[in-house]
């Protein structure tokens, strides 16, 4: 059995009175891609955001149950250290309104990494997302002028600069066209050798294409979780079957 990089036990979460996550027992295996699928509002993004405590930003959130990151209880980990080891890529590409270079060194500056390391890290991270050849001559151009796909790659590169071990992707392709989506998917598969990846997607084909494990969520519950090939060929829960065969969702 592989080890869980991220896990929850009996996790419950409320937004005010709304019960968004119900008794979720979940495990994200290390160095694999795990996908969370389900209809909108099912709690998959909420679950993802538990792992880097992004839900803290919202008022009236109540969380009960335990969350473990690399075997350590989430409540014992310093939030800055946590977010450094668990990077996140958002639904809409969100480069800062600075130059490409400044976007990439932002995390390095905030974590006080020596300036002389910047050029190497910038090159390595841009190479990792296949942007180096395109961007090496215009690193000081505004990041907002890039195409949506390049912006999203840049955001992934930006996360890589702070050397996380786990990357959370929250519908990273929903703002992209099919060709750009395909490229980001190829990138994810490349990255899983060195990183643990958890991706939330509303696109079932995407989950089937890229992930090793899939969890299906519905109305705040993790209905079924297992190897992607099994979930998509012989789901054991009829709700999962109903969703993946397109009867609802």
């Amino acid at each position: 059995m592989q080890t869980c990089a991220l896990s929850t036990r009996q996790l419950n979460l409320w937004y005010g009175l709304f019960h968004a996550l119900k008794n979720v027992d979940f495990c994200v295996y290390a160095n694999a891609i795990t996908a969370l699928i389900g209809p909108s509002g099912c709690g998959k993004s909420t679950l993802l955001r538990c792992f880097n405590r992004m839900n803290d930003l919202i008022d009236d959130v109540i969380i009960k149950g335990s969350i473990h990151v690399e075997g350590r209880d989430l409540s014992t980990i310093d939030i800055i250290e946590l977010r450094r080891s668990v990077g996140m890529v958002f639904q809409r590409p969100n480069p800062f309104p600075f130059s490409i270079y400044d976007n990439l060194v932002y995390g390095l500056q905030t974590h006080g990494i020596a300036k002389k390391c910047y050029p190497d890290i910038v090159e390595r991270c841009l190479r990792a997302v296949d942007l180096w050849d395109d961007l090496k001559d215009r690193l000081h151009k505004p990041a907002l002028e890039l195409s949506e796909e390049m912006k999203q790659r840049l955001c992934i590169a930006r996360v890589l600069t702070i050397e996380p071990r786990i990357i959370l992707l929250d519908e990273p392709c929903s703002a992209l066209d099919p060709i750009a989506t395909m490229k980001i998917e190829e990138l994810m598969i490349e990255l899983k050798e060195r990183y643990t990846i958890l991706i939330v997607t509303h696109n079932m084909q995407q989950a089937a294409r890229v992930s090793d494990y899939t969890g299906f969520m519905l109305l705040g519950e993790l209905v079924e979780f297992g190897e992607t090939s099994r979930i998509f060929t012989s789901p054991s829960d009829e709700r999962t079957e109903g969703y993946i065969t397109g009867r609802f969702g």
Binding site: L57, R83, R84, G87, F90, N94, F96, T110
Partner: peptide
């Protein structure tokens, strides 16, 4: 945009 703040916080910035 809120996404700028989220992007920064998610990088471990205070």
């Amino acid at each position: 945009p809120r996404t700028y703040r989220e992007g920064s916080l998610a990088m471990g910035a205070t």
